[in-house]
Design a protein around this nucleic acid. Sequence first.
DNA 1: TCCGGAAATTAGACAAAGTCCAGATTGCTG
DNA 2: CAGCAATCTGGACTTTGTCTAATTTCCGGA
Lengths: 136, 136
Amino acid sequence: MYYTRDNMAGLLRGHDINPTHQRIEIAHALFSRQEHLSADQVMAFVNTRHSETSKATVYNTLKLFLEKGLVREVIVDPSKVFFDPNTTPHHHIYEVDSGKLSDIDAEHVHISGLPPLPDNMVTEGIDLIVRVRRKA
Amino acid sequence: MYYTRDNMAGLLRGHDINPTHQRIEIAHALFSRQEHLSADQVMAFVNTRHSETSKATVYNTLKLFLEKGLVREVIVDPSKVFFDPNTTPHHHIYEVDSGKLSDIDAEHVHISGLPPLPDNMVTEGIDLIVRVRRKA
DNA sequence: TCCGGAAATTAGACAAAGTCCAGATTGCTG
DNA sequence: CAGCAATCTGGACTTTGTCTAATTTCCGGA
């Protein structure tokens, strides 16, 4: 299953997103790499070839993708947000020194003993982050 | 067990921190409230009475407290870091709309099935964040 | 008490991430 | 082709946090 630019239009439509030129480029940047990218990185990738996409559009589009459930937000670095094209249930390992972020499949991870929520609340998601450091 | 300004000096010394006037105020702001505060909030609290403490000092001091293990950092809000005077093992519930943050005692929570780490890595901490939203 | 140095604090300039807005472009649809 | 809504854009702006060089505070010894 490859993520070519051509596939992107369908992917976007499937998530109720009007596939414009810029949106396809941004989706392609994320999905073809299958990596966690910051808005800055997305902008850099999208603008390497030749086409120019503005900062505002990158931010707007990432927010749109988020709302439509196409990508996920990963908040581990105090200075920037990462966007994750993997929306299947999974957790993260964050290497503190380098900022490297990798996935842990949620399938084998089990979390028990969480207290019940108040009636008027719903869980939006559970983020589990294992912060690791290189041994001294 | 109360957290008065007088107790703060001992608390700081116990963590190898030279108890200066400003540090005592900042520690007091956090510990007397037992709440998660952002740097901004700390600064506001510390400067309400009359004494002035600069932004640089607030940031420097919070970083120092962090290094010395007096407080913990909580990264849940994409726009700012919270500082947590509770350093016992615990997790967090984050109410997305309001930004309200509360604790989950780690005692009854059990996490299993995490994959082993590479040899040259050590876990620095495991953050578990339950993101919740008010029911529509 | 006075001196000197180390530690701590400060104001304010700066940097980086993200937001906002008003105007320009695009792409339908009739 | 005209009109309209959706999208995109540059650039000004905001916020959080960092940095630096100068000042202040603290303390031990003569």
